[in-house]
Design a protein around this nucleic acid. Structure first.
Lengths: 141, 141
DNA sequence: CAGCAATCTTAGCCATGGCTAACTTTGTTT
DNA sequence: AAACAAAGTTAGCCATGGCTAAGATTGCTG
């Protein structure tokens, strides 16, 4: 019975971006194709094929050449936690009336670097701030 | 009169980390040596030499082999804004009683991805929250 | 001032994650 | 079923930013 993953599943920012998009595509279209991932991440199909194969080797998804991919249990769990993190950060920044595109850009950059305790804190803070619109109004420029 | 910088000064996360440490070393010791930057960033001296030479080519600092470096005006301005950003994020996260090491780690990761409007928002939010210790207390776990 | 230790540089390597160009496979369309 | 377009893959390239090993320079110290 051969081991499935060659090394500890790398969890780079790039891998997290892929997982996030793949889960989103599966949720909206039912499947994730190379071409759609490429369009979504604005990178070439070749780069996607390459990364997908590495993610397969890392046990984050199962891939069949020319066919398609499915997230493994661990890949899906990871993708969901990444998506949750993205949502929490977006919800937080949305409190302050920042431009949506800016929010998206900042969240895309930051999200890979937020630890669970910090994330939980921001989630709790957002909940508190929602009860204090006057305070939030003072923060909005 | 030859142009000084070969390309648009790259402003990667790595470059920002170097600038931040160099300014800090200059502020505390009066100068920044290769060996200290290496220790501070926990990377090899060879990597530092390499990057410093690229930052010289990019016009962020002036470097003389075996001698030393000085930040250029643009390098120093950049370093200061990076330091300010770091401080604002740290001040924000410190409100909530998170572990100092965790704060440091998260800030180091996030800081390179925060746009000026978002940063200003967080700065204003921190100021408001300081006036609302009760609310902040509800956020702390 | 010779020698030594610390510092710095160079050379050459590696992984990551992009790219283009060319080719293969698939599936649809006639 | 042939042909075509869309999708996917492979090969080979590149920049970034790390690394180690080995050599060069500096400056201190006996």
């Amino acid at each position: 019975m051969p081991a499935k993953q060659k090394a500890a599943p790398r969890r780079s920012a790039a891998v997290e971006d892929y997982l996030e998009r793949i889960l989103e595509l599966i949720n909206t279209k039912g499947y994730a194709r190379v071409v759609d991932i490429a369009l979504s991440l604005k990178i070439s199909q070749a780069s996607v094929t390459n990364m997908i194969q590495r993610m397969d080797a890392d046990g984050l998804l199962k891939y069949e050449r020319y066919r398609g991919m499915v997230l493994t249990a661990s890949g899906e769990a990871l993708a969901k936690s990444i998506t949750r993190r993205h949502q929490i950060l977006t919800d937080f920044l949305r409190l302050f009336g920042l431009d949506e595109e800016l929010i998206y850009h900042d969240v895309e950059g930051m999200e890979h670097h937020i630890s669970p305790p910090t994330l939980n804190t921001i989630e709790a803070l957002t909940a508190q701030l929602r009860k204090q619109p006057a305070l939030v109004a003072r923060v909005r420029q």
